[in-house]
């Protein structure tokens, strides 16, 4: 059986960069646009890297900033200063 992790963001300006960064670091991830939200799912694992986000934004970015725009997640969370990872074991 397939085991998908997912993350959903509000469809706003911040989320655009998050989605770009996620697509770059998770080429297999599927991006779904729904009214007012963007949902991204991937098999087993999805990562957001601080470095990629800082490149996209052109400024320092704290991983916890994503808390403002996230709507929901599915998967075990592993977060530190450099990344936010969702995964099923």
């Amino acid at each position: 059986m397939s085991q998908l992790v997912f993350i959903a963001f509000q469809d706003n300006d911040n989320a655009r960069y998050l989605v770009e960064a996620i697509q770059e670091d998770n080429p297999e991830a599927e991006v779904q646009h729904q009214p007012a939200m963007i949902r991204i799912q991937a098999e087993k694992r999805l990562v957001i890297n601080r470095e990629t986000m800082e490149e996209k934004l052109g400024r320092d970015w704290d991983v916890q900033e994503m808390l403002i725009d996230v709507i929901s997640i599915g998967g075990n969370v592993d977060e530190d200063d450099d990344h936010f990872i969702l995964q099923w074991n």
């Binding site: 007012a36 949902r39 996230v70 709507i71 929901s72 997640i73």
Partner: peptide, 27 residues
């Protein structure tokens, strides 16, 4: 998630915003 997305689709920006703002805590 789907209900609030539905609120947006029905033009209710106030509800979708509190819904998603609440849901950001929910994560």
């Amino acid at each position: 998630v789907p209900f609030m997305s539905g609120a947006a689709y029905n033009g209710d920006m106030a509800t979708v915003t509190f819904g998603f703002s609440a849901q950001s805590d929910e994560a």
